[in-house]
Computed example of a mutant assay.
Amino acid sequence: MAAGVYGGLLQLGFDLPEAPRFADSHGPLMICGMFGTLIALERAVALGRGWAYLGPAALGLGGLALLAGLPGILPAGLFVIGAFAFFATSVTIFSLQRAVFTLVLCIGALGLAIGNIMLAAGAPVGSFVGFWLIFLISTIAAERLELSRVLSPPPGALVAFVAIVAVFVVGAGWGVFEPPGRSLAGAGLLGMTAWLARYDVAMRTVRMRGQPRFMAAAMLAGYGWLVVAGLFLLLAGGAAFDYDLVLHAVFIGFVLSMVFGHVLIIFPGITGVVLAYSPWLYLPLALLHAAVAMRVVGDVLELAPLRLASGTVTVAALLGFTTTLALAARRSRSNAAA
């Protein structure tokens, strides 16, 4: 993550010590090396079978190979191996629990695999980034669908969810920045946000206190950036920073906000290390969304200084979040020992 963020700052135009492979590898480091490893590890822990750890291991090693500057075919090949092991893990989970949400998890894993194959084939990232969007958005949507069962949504809601996912997957797979793919993908994002606003359990837990409210706030704020990305895909094709705005509204505004919201339960489940909730977590969460707002406004108005400032605020949000978690966990351990 640190290397991917560093590469993103270089791409924004920050005057930092040169590390060309960081800038060139910003996307693969973040999607495959960081998000891919994290989600594949979570899936492997859930399945509980040794072979499933091949997925996160290969994806993580692919990220390290990129950082080491090894020939491109090696990290790309590791990313492909890791993605297919991750897909096999997801299919196995579906065979054990046949449900719509486990099927959508398979679709997300397949999106990562297809995107990584195209990366290994030397295709430019912009030509297949839609498959990486399918990976992350389908994964998160499926997990929220699973949690929505506590609200007992009507059968028609499940049919609507499947239709919305299908529209988005077709659009993103067709080409998220080319017609008619962008229109379908944009409509899918808006439809998904509307579905989540109606049936997601976060709409209720946000009224609670403490950790449940924080998690819900992170999720609901992330949904807002799906609306922004969806509207931009539908209404604003051809803008100067079209590509940058949509991807960072989704990857930072939506996906990273979901990470902020879920890390308090995911990290302990993977590592056994207990993380304590702290009200101070709202500060880095607010900084994260302020950074996305700055990025979006800077892209729309073509304001380079505002775009640069958004990078600084994003780094501050990530550092603030990890520092707050570390201090809260340390305080929690001290209290437990006392």
Rank of each mutant, 00 (worst) to 15 (best):
L283F: 12
Y282F: 14
L190W: 01
G72W: 04
P212S: 03
V292L: 11
F267T: 10
S310W: 01
G122Y: 11
G230A: 05
G55F: 01
V259A: 13
V263P: 00
R307T: 14
G269P: 01
G130C: 07
F267R: 06
F131N: 14
I117A: 04
G175S: 08
L10N: 09
D299Y: 11
L235P: 05
F177L: 08
E178K: 13
A57W: 07
Y53N: 09
A76Y: 06
C106P: 06
A65N: 10
S183L: 11
G33T: 12
I73F: 11
G48R: 01
L301K: 02
P155A: 13
G238D: 13
A68M: 14
L325P: 04
S332A: 13
A68V: 12
D244F: 13
V201Y: 13
L103T: 00
A194H: 03
G50L: 14
A57C: 08
L308P: 15
A141L: 14
Y6W: 15
R144C: 08
A123V: 00
A160W: 10
F251W: 07
A286I: 15
L54D: 05
G238L: 01
I137C: 12
G77E: 00
L283M: 05
A240W: 11
A304N: 04
L47G: 07
A217V: 14
M34Y: 14
V169D: 08
G111W: 11
V300H: 00
A309Q: 05
G126N: 11
Y282S: 07
I164H: 00
F128D: 05
I270R: 10
V201I: 15
I140F: 07
L306N: 03
A160G: 02
L147Y: 00
I137G: 02
